Simulated scan of single mutants.
Amino acid sequence: MAGRKHRTTWPTTDAVSPLRLVRQGIPATLEQVCHALERRGHPGVSASMLSAWETGRHVTSLRYRKVLCEFYGRPAKDLFAHQDQRLTGAAETPRLLVGHHDLSDAMIDVVQRAQHYLVVLGSRSRDEAYLRTIETVLAARDELVHYRVLFGPPRHQVLADHLLRLLEIRDPHDRSHGLKTLHIGIIEDDPGTPERFFCASESAAIVPVPSVTSAEAFDSGVAFAAGVAERYVDHARQCYAAARKLETARAVRAFPAVRGWPEDTEPAPADRR
């Protein structure tokens, strides 16, 4: 990924992707395609980004799939088959997590083992042990890049307090390590944009799923290894790019007061996100 010395876990191939072949058939360089897209009103695509899409190191978002299909005049099933085949062909077996302790422990383990990237999506976190672990890890590893994307405002005060502590630990505008290491954004409440919950690093991801034990509980999840985890990191980066930035204490404090949970009530497993 850009700016990091991190080797992808996806298998390599000598085959040239359809996405690269169609560009070479014009013929056009990566830079020429990027300039052409910008002239058509689609800025933000760099040569390195386009190259990563062509090799399958990164998955092209739906937005840019549509842009490239229109640009090249080819259907998505032709241009992006190499990316989708790698996703479905990952040699990994997901692991089911059942029980709120197992789910919470697995998420904390992902946080503790993160070395390059740590991404968290969701607005309902209220597990203080989990949130404090994130803070401790970020304070100890100043080059660890963290993304936190909310879907609507924080539902609990403990999460709002966590965001303020993140801003005390890191300055989102600091570039002393050559890149930004703290990214906080919010996808505003929108019926057309479903809320998402997951925690991922470059080596593992935990995705909560509907409970397999009870209709009332949210105590189940699926654990993925590095190949899929890297895609979830990419997912979070795309969400952040579309989010309103929330990177000052003033912006966080602007949220209306949010509820806590009673001291004599254990935080619900559904909110360990």
Rank of each mutant, 00 (worst) to 15 (best):
R4C: 04
P11L: 06
T13Y: 05
L19P: 01
L21R: 14
Q24R: 15
T29F: 09
L30T: 04
L30E: 05
Q32I: 04
V33R: 08
H35D: 09
E38L: 02
G41V: 05
V45R: 09
A47G: 15
M49W: 04
L50Q: 01
W53E: 04
E54Q: 09
G56L: 08
R57Y: 00
R57Q: 10
T60W: 07
T60V: 13
Y64T: 11
R65Q: 15
R65Y: 09
V67N: 05
L68D: 02
E70I: 02
G73C: 08
A76C: 10
D78A: 11
F80Q: 00
F80L: 04
A81I: 12
H82N: 11
H82A: 08
P94T: 10
G99N: 10
S104W: 00
M107V: 00
M107T: 00
Q112I: 07
H116Q: 12
S125Q: 09
R126M: 06
R126A: 03
Y130S: 05
Y130P: 05
L131A: 00
T133Q: 14
E135N: 12
L138T: 05
A140Q: 15
R141C: 10
D142Q: 09
E143L: 00
V145S: 07
V149W: 03
P154V: 00
R155W: 02
R155C: 07
Q157N: 10
Q157L: 13
L166M: 14
L167H: 01
I169G: 03
R175M: 15
R175N: 11
S176V: 12
L182M: 07
H183Y: 07
I184R: 00
I184K: 03
D189A: 14
P194Y: 12
E195D: 15
E195S: 15
F197M: 13
F198R: 04
F198L: 15
A200N: 07
I206S: 01
P208V: 03
S214K: 05
E216R: 14
D219E: 08
F224C: 13
A225P: 05
H235K: 08
Q238M: 10
C239Q: 10
Y240I: 04
A241D: 08
A242M: 10
R244E: 05
L246S: 07
T248L: 09
V252R: 02
R253D: 08
R253L: 14
P256M: 02
P256R: 00
P262C: 01
D264N: 15
P269I: 06
P269H: 05
